[in-house]
Design a protein around this nucleic acid. Sequence first.
DNA 1: CAGAGAACTTAGGATTTCACAT
DNA 2: ATGTGAAATCCTAAGTTCTCTG
Length: 655
Amino acid sequence: ERIKHEDVSTDRHKDKHKEKDHRKEEVPHRVKTEPDNDHFYHSPKSLKRQRDNDETEFKPKKIKLENDRVDKKGKKRKQDEDIKPKKTQKNKKGEVADGKKKAKKEPEEKWKWWEEERATDGSKWRFLEHKGPVMAAPYEPLPSKVRFFYDGKQMKLAPQAEEVATFFAKMLDHEYTTKDAFRKNFFKDWRKEMTSEEKSKITDLKKCNFNEMGEYFKAQSEARKAMTKDDKLKIKVENERLLQEYGFCIMDNHKERIANFRIEPPGLFRGRGDHPKMGMLKRRIRPEDIIINCSKDSKHPKPPPGTKWKELRHDNKVTWLVSWTESIQGSIKYIMLNPSSRIKGEKDWQKYETARNLKKCVDRLRNQYREDWKSKEMRIRQRAVALYFIDKLALRAGNEKEEGESADTVGCCSLRVEHINLYPEKDGQEFVVEFDFLGKDSIRYYNKVPVEKRVRTFFYTSILNKHLQELMDGLTAKVFRTYNASITLQQQLKELTTDENLPAKILSYNRANRAVAILCNHQRAPPKTFEKSMQNLQTKIDAKKDQLSDAKRDVKSAKADLKVRRDEKSKKAVETKKKAVERLEEQLMKLEVQATDREENKQIALGTSKLNYLDPRISVAWCKKWGIPIEKIYNKTQREKFAWAIDMAEDDYEF
DNA sequence: CAGAGAACTTAGGATTTCACAT
DNA sequence: ATGTGAAATCCTAAGTTCTCTG
């Protein structure tokens, strides 16, 4: 049962926890009049994040900021300039027309698209040319020495069925292949690929022996690893050639990198979590399945000889170059541009500007939803509670999903009774809500959080988003995640960064990043090698400590020497030894910081928030402020993605 | 004007590459 | 040179939001 009507959950729950007097208390019962800022956000796991920057401080600050802006106007204020009125900007530049087929060969050193006007008519591009996708390599039948057995007897499979069998064989030592659903789905789809003869013989998966196939592929991958340098180089060169040929497109006079220019190869579907479709055959995509999107006046990509595209389209209202319909869910897959591209970058920039707009009105919204808790209309109350959790806990919206089509996961608006427990009192706190559910990618969300009211209800995302849109232009549920993530990073950096050495600062940054990852529940499986790598690090640390104490002893004896001899040489020796101690101390410190960082990061994934939720300008400003090379924070790919931010943010950037 | 389908962002794990120690 | 572990990159699934259509 879904929690969409207030009564259900609470009533049951109340019985369980036999409270009586709160019972009638149907609407918000504020624990505090003031929002409890100390733990306004409530991260899953234990990390606590203080908010120094609460409302009381916030308002004056805002005013000050306003003044700052005025003062700086004219000097430099690029960074505060927002993208916003996309609609109001006019193309005054008289842009060079599109049709220029031959855009410059080289992506003329670092194009600063963020300094250009943006289209105002909803079109995504004016000119688009590309070479189409790279098709998956055709199936190569197994050498005849590799046999398949059915019910103990060798059996030669026709290529169609054989190919699908190899998909299974390649996964033999994965636990997937032991799962019922996986086997059932696989077998069903496999049989569809069989000749009628094969179909009549092969009726039981348990009687299939794929071992020789499995061994063969293992041997192959061993062989690949053992290839000579030369052969490896050849492959590398070939990949590079493919990248050069297919990995770029020309969009509006600029050569841009394509994200995924290869068609997904066929294989067995591996969903995440308990996916009802695991094991199904993801079929091979043929040119006849593929829709190409490009400019009418561009050089159109050619389908492989003897084939045709499904369709050639010229739609500049969309950003994709290639699409096809995938065979598992029937959803559409796309080939699109790299994050470093203008088209992605602009959108990303805009996302953060929307989040900054939210910052301006978040107080109002928070007050409003607190008010709405008291509404006599159930829907309003539901909406307000949903929004409260989305804001406070950075939950995802939680759209409807069709049952049985995918793993059973939920978000804020699709939570069901079984996902929460309500405690009128727990550990000395009133109104504690315990969340325990599987979210996106079947990652568990577990959190216990004291709330300001008795909670009961949830809501539909479409209605919620409609409401949000009325509150602020461009506001949707996910903007809260972006906003809370970014503002948290900014606050945490302010709070944690100390004037210490570089490694300590980096640790502070990672800790701030970690606070966000915890808020957003970005988890990872601890690396398989985690324990070992911690041990290795510890060994290094111990070794370093030994070296250090040796070095210190050396200093002592050198000093003693100096006392006796009192000559220049001894003096020098003392200095040298002291230097050595310092060096070792620094190395030791680095190692220890590294160990701390790694330990704290055991099950936390920083990448997702860094890439998708944190306004990069905050990080850039922080680097500038503390004299930290940006390379310490962003690797090459990340620097490409965030080139706009790196170029425009100054050290005083305020999210 | 709701619901379905299309478009686009976000996500963790697998695979590959790289840097460094031996 | 080679092996090893960490970092980078790839892969594509799984979300959210937007848009179109009956």
